[in-house]
């Protein structure tokens, strides 16, 4: 299998592209089915709340530390860059506004989502593929339990519950990093920074933030579950499934992120 793949790459990138397209079309169908079934069960309130709570705990705990670390360093890097630029133009008083706007509308949601895709998406894909390989999914089907209802719905509910928490947390850490940089590099006090934030940020920004994080969480859950539920084989395939889940959910997130940015623009500040 892998040798065949390697040969194909050497033969022509176009063959690989064709391969990639067919696999992608199949995956989109699988994702569509998972989405439709998930909403069917949610609308009929066939939800295992206890399991959803457990999944929310896992998703939150698994991501807490990595989301914190990456948000801190993203906040530091971004504010450093912005501060250096604004100081040149004497725009110290605008630092808070620019940093928080970028953090809340763009960088915050996508950074948190990338980490959740890497942490949660990959472990869901690995877990479900392992369950598929060890016939646990077949065992559910024999007991007439729909794997989507049993496995996907609680993960989706859990992610939807945790994502706002994670993104507020990520945003807060990013903002803290921005304040520290502004203070240390440009000698802008926390008060001036926060005043600028207050005069720039409007409620709409938070709506966009939560909309983006909810969409991103849904993308991660649906893609990684669809990939996990449709992968069979051995140990090797668990690894492939993880790679596919991460790559697909991140790619789709980047595309959707742009579309949402475009649709939610409501005029300059």
């Amino acid at each position: 299998m892998q040798a065949a793949q390697a040969k194909k790459i050497v033969a022509s990138p176009f063959l690989l592209f064709e391969d990639w397209m067919t696999v992608g079309v199949g995956l989109c169908g699988q994702v569509g089915i998972v989405i439709a079934k998930t909403f069917y069960y949610i609308l009929r309130m066939q939800i295992d709340w206890q399991e959803s709570l457990r999944q929310a705990y896992f998703i939150g705990v698994k991501s807490f530390l990595v989301v914190g670390i990456t948000s801190l360093f993203t906040g530091l890097a971004m504010s450093l860059q912005i501060v250096m630029q604004l100081v040149q133009f004497g725009g110290e008083s605008a630092i808070g506004g620019v940093v928080s706007l970028a953090l809340i509308r763009q960088i915050g949601p996508i950074t948190a989502a990338i980490i959740v895709a890497g942490r949660v998406g990959s472990s869901i894909a690995a877990e479900l593929t392992t369950m598929n390989i060890s016939e646990q999914i077949d065992a559910l089907k024999v007991m007439r339990i729909d794997p989507v209802k049993f496995l996907v719905v609680p993960r989706f509910i859990g992610a939807m519950a945790m994502m706002p928490v994670l993104s507020i947390y990520s945003m807060a850490i990013g903002l803290l990093a921005g304040m520290i940089i502004a203070q240390v590099v440009a000698d802008v006090s926390f008060g001036v920074f926060l005043d600028s934030v207050k005069s720039t940020i409007i409620d709409q920004d938070f709506y966009v933030h939560f909309l983006k994080s909810a969409i991103n969480a849904a993308i991660v859950i649906f893609y990684s579950c669809a990939i996990g539920l449709n992968t069979r084989g051995g140990a090797e395939d668990v690894g492939h499934a993880v790679t596919r889940a991460v790559v697909w959910s991140m790619t789709v997130m980047f595309i959707v992120n742009y579309v949402v940015t475009d649709l939610t623009y409501e005029g300059p500040r």
């Binding site: 369950m131 060890s134 016939e135 646990q136 077949d138 065992a139 559910l140 024999v142």
Partner: peptide
């Protein structure tokens, strides 16, 4: 139907 799987297939 009762089915006994080769690898037990218990939910971990």
């Amino acid at each position: 139907i009762g089915l006994v799987f080769q690898g037990s297939a218990l939910l971990n």
